[in-house]
């Protein structure tokens, strides 16, 4: 889990001599504010937010636009090819958009993972400890 030091360690430091009392483990909380303010983490959050906010605005915007246009106008009833109208084309582009954004995100997330791992390593966090 988190770094564990034993109670007798602190005793030893205070007195400057070996004085073993109880073997009670004291869990040392990691300094999350320090991690949060580290350049690595800040860069991760900056990149992540930039990506998430812009893509979320894009897909929610297109989705709402589609619903507003089909609800209030007949613009998409014009034919595209044969009897297939633009409304089907727009609907399918929302499908394609979903798959494309999922694929893009999977790639991006690997970079975010690497940045997160580097940050954790910088603060001596060993992933195996959680197991």
């Amino acid at each position: 889990m988190t770094k564990v030091i034993t109670a007798n360690d602190t005793q030893q430091n205070a007195r400057g001599e070996k004085k073993v009392t109880h073997e009670r483990p004291v869990v040392k909380e990691p300094d999350f504010q320090k991690i949060e303010n580290s350049p690595g983490f800040r860069e991760l959050m900056h990149k992540k937010k930039k990506f998430l906010i812009s893509t979320t605005a894009l897909f929610l915007g297109l989705y709402l636009l589609f619903n507003i246009v089909i609800s209030y106008t007949n613009w998409l009833d014009a034919p595209f090819i044969g009897d297939i109208t633009w409304v089907w084309v727009f609907a399918f582009s929302l499908f394609a958009m979903t798959w494309i954004l999922v694929t893009v995100y999977m790639k991006k997330a690997e970079k975010f993972d690497a940045m997160a791992k580097a940050t954790l390593k910088e603060f001596d966090y060993d992933e195996e400890d959680t197991k």
Binding site: M1, P30, F32, Q33, E36, F41, A116, L120, T130
Partner: peptide, 20 residues
């Protein structure tokens, strides 16, 4: 609680320090 938010922010975004 700014301190607690730092913890949640770090844990949510790095996957580290999981409390099991």
């Amino acid at each position: 609680d700014v301190k607690k938010y730092s913890e949640v922010n770090v844990r949510a975004n790095t996957g580290g320090f999981r409390q099991l």
